[in-house]
Design a protein around this nucleic acid. Structure first.
Lengths: 334, 334
DNA sequence: GACACTGATTAAAACGTAACAATCACAGAT
DNA sequence: ATCTGTGATTGTTACGTTTTAATCAGTGTC
């Protein structure tokens, strides 16, 4: 219980608390001999800096917040891996918040970030409401959008072109000669879902077809469980589409499971393509065609921008980066 | 930039800072009318409590640390979901640290936890070294072991019986009449890997066979990539085993992929069983038999114990909880 | 021997909050 | 009119660190 403070270290080493603080934060300012002495005492006493006291006095912490929509989705864990790698290289700690797609949970996470006085926040926003983010910025907290393009120029953002991705997916399905195509999607409030749909419609239009004929099955979540329910919905209808475009791989995995259980053969009866190209996509019953995104890079680059904004606020120039997705063809569309 | 503090709120509401603090922490101590007034001012000014100042003064924070071995493994994200759900129900925030199986990263995460003065730590330890955990306890930080039994009685721990699980898996394989069985495992330093092996050997012994005949392929990581490499190793050997027991499902997924690519049929040529029963296990090319663990519960119960130790330190009694695993049979062992 | 200069160290003042003892206002009892 | 008790509020102190200005001890110069 007896916390050892910077004063205890100072007393034991025969220096002032200020010197110990210098050893910790500006080692070059203190003479080699005293530095060594202080460092041994720190080790002897097992001193650990009180982060809160430090943050309070310094006015800022060495942590960043990361808010993701679904920690159970490998897409986001890959992003998180990229964030954490770069952050810890730069000596920052990451506080991870999972909103599970719920607005209130996201709000609560942002509140925690604000209370902890994180240096910056990386967020995959679950809606288009910018006011909460502006609130953070007003508090001097840098905000970078992840997997979301910026509609304004006064912020950094890193995204992947989802319209292009949607077009790629449906172009690929159309090339297979499929007639009726359905789009299996999550909440239509999600920009990702909207954009991928727009891309899909664009592909139809480019092929000289009516974008309106794209059937849609919308689910409240983008999980495997939701995908399976979508399959049941589809099977209950009279006529099955020829090809399915799922808004992410989890939906596709669940859809695949549901279809097979319903006796539908993939790709013989129905073709199927997902989105994200998560690691498991190549391991499913029928391996999944998908749209690959540079996921890890997404997290890493976003963090790069965030830390630049934090550490060089004067020279920092906001950037909006847009990656391009890739088509990965596997069995489910052969 | 201009941070609004408790004093600003107090001035605007015409009360003392102490009263504002009371509104925040012991609302029942303050008269209804003043409470309402203060609360409106808080909203008007957009005041957010300075968590660091609060922690510094109060001597403890409202956060717990969670250190997992591999955030890319669905097993751990399920555990994390359980932890986060209960923690946020109780008003605690979770700081998630991913050690990626590296001892130094785990150490670094624990240091961050100590600096942040978290109230408690939940950890899936990556080795048997208790000194670092005792160090935390010495600082007044509660520690609960997750997915790891306690060898001492002075701590809480929540685990699943891995020896039983290993026995179940190999019992099941033996019941299929398989002759030569191999154990595909991660680092042998991991208790999980050891215990599951012991369980496997026990099953062999109980069947009147020599436990020594269990072949072993040990990989440095427990990922799908490692599983695929293990498959290549196995295929390079002259004779393939009849059945494979993989120490977790990620290894099994990779193994499955590797075997199929090598032209080996599952389960016709080789039977395969994994461990954890992650969500994807039922969606793989050949659906995976596995050993199911109460993963979400593991995280939830561990957090329950941790918060009890934090909030009721005097009445708290340390508990060691051991869950039992279940066998799930699917195609890969039919 | 006084001087300025340099590099190393220190003393002291914050940072925003929680907690405790002290004060206050006021009603009811004597 | 005084006292007591109660509930509401306030003043003050301390938490552990960082930071700035001030002090100190040398070293070399004129």
């Amino acid at each position: 219980m007896s916390m050892v403070s910077i004063k205890d270290v100072a007393a034991r080493a025969g220096v002032s608390p200020g010197t110990v603080s210098n050893v910790l934060n500006r080692p070059e300012k203190v003479a080699g001999s005293t530095r060594d002495r202080v460092e041994t005492v720190i080790r002897e006493l097992g001193f650990v800096r009180h982060g809160s006291a430090s943050t309070l006095r310094a006015g800022h912490s060495r942590t960043v917040g990361l808010s993701v929509m679904d920690i159970g989705n490998p897409f986001f864990t890959d992003v998180a891996a990229g964030v954490e790698d770069l952050a810890s290289e730069r000596g920052y700690a990451v506080i991870l918040g999972n909103s599970s797609g719920s607005r209130v949970k996201e709000e609560r996470n942002l509140l925690v970030f604000a209370e902890q006085r994180v240096r910056g926040v990386l967020i995959t926003p679950s809606d288009e409401d910018q006011t909460r983010l502006d609130m953070l910025r007003g508090r001097g907290i840098a905000v970078v959008l992840v997997d979301h393009p910026a509609e304004r120029a006064d912020q950094c953002a890193v995204a992947v072109n989802d319209v292009t991705g949607g077009t790629m997916a449906v172009d690929h399905l159309l090339a297979g000669g499929f007639d009726s195509i359905a789009y299996i999607t999550g909440p239509s409030s999600l920009r990702q879902c909207q954009d991928r749909r727009r891309g899909a419609e664009r592909a139809l239009a480019a092929a000289g077809r009516d974008p309106q004929e794209l059937r849609e099955v919308s689910m409240p979540a983008m999980t495997a469980a939701a995908g399976q329910q979508a399959a049941e919905k589809l099977l209950a209808q009279d006529r099955l589409p020829d090809a399915l475009f799922c808004a992410n791989d989890l939906l596709a995995v669940g859809m695949l499971r549901g279809l097979l259980q319903g006796g539908v053969r993939v790709p013989d009866d129905v073709s199927l393509i997902g989105y994200d190209d998560i690691d498991f996509a190549s391991a499913t019953t029928v391996s999944l065609s998908s749209i690959r995104q540079p996921t890890y890079q997404l997290g890493r680059v976003a963090t790069e921008l965030l830390l630049d904004e934090c550490d060089n606020p004067d020279t920092h120039a906001h950037q909006q980066i847009m990656f391009q997705p890739d088509l990965v063809v596997r069995e489910s569309t052969r």
